[in-house]
């Protein structure tokens, strides 16, 4: 919940968020602040957690949040990975519930294709500019 107010806006005293979260009464979920014993599995879990959005804090990943719900989501992710589920399957499961919004990794779909098409166009455009600016003239000398 207290994602830094660091950049620019800092200036901008934030009116939002930070104070309001009421404290819940239970301790954090077992795997909210505990790593999996298998380093490989923990690594997979961390990678996934870093790319899932915390729903109660909105602009942090669940890996960077002290919000109780983020803790419960970390618990879900870790226990499922420990049970052998693949990270992408867990992501899929969450996206079925919360939509694309929960994943910081956009997937190609009817709603997101420009995110992938534009870089391709930019790449072609950049190539074209470089070619026209320098490639074409490389044959003749400057006057």
């Amino acid at each position: 919940m207290k994602r830094l107010s660091i950049f620019v806006i800092v200036l901008a005293t934030l009116g939002y968020g930070q104070v309001a979260l009421a404290q819940d009464s239970l301790p954090p979920a077992p795997y909210a602040y505990r790593q999996l014993d298998d380093p490989q599995q923990e690594h997979e879990a961390e990678e996934l957690m870093e790319s899932l959005r915390c729903l109660t804090c909105q602009s942090q990943s669940i890996a960077d949040s002290d919000a109780p719900m983020a803790g419960d989501m970390r618990h879900q992710v870790r226990t499922r990975i420990a049970a052998g589920e693949s990270p992408e399957h867990i992501r899929q499961w969450l996206m079925e519930r919360y939509g694309d919004y929960i994943s910081y990794t956009p997937r190609m779909s009817n709603d997101t294709w420009p995110l992938f098409a534009v870089p391709v166009l930019l790449f072609l455009g950049a190539g074209l500019i470089v070619w026209r600016r320098i490639g074409r003239r490389s044959g003749k000398d400057s006057q």
């Binding site: 790319s51 929960i102 994943s103 910081y104 990794t105 956009p106 709603d111 997101t112 995110l115």
Partner: peptide, 10 residues
Amino acid sequence: GIRVSVGPPY
């Protein structure tokens, strides 16, 4: 009306 997230993995 569609919500998506774009983050570090992108």
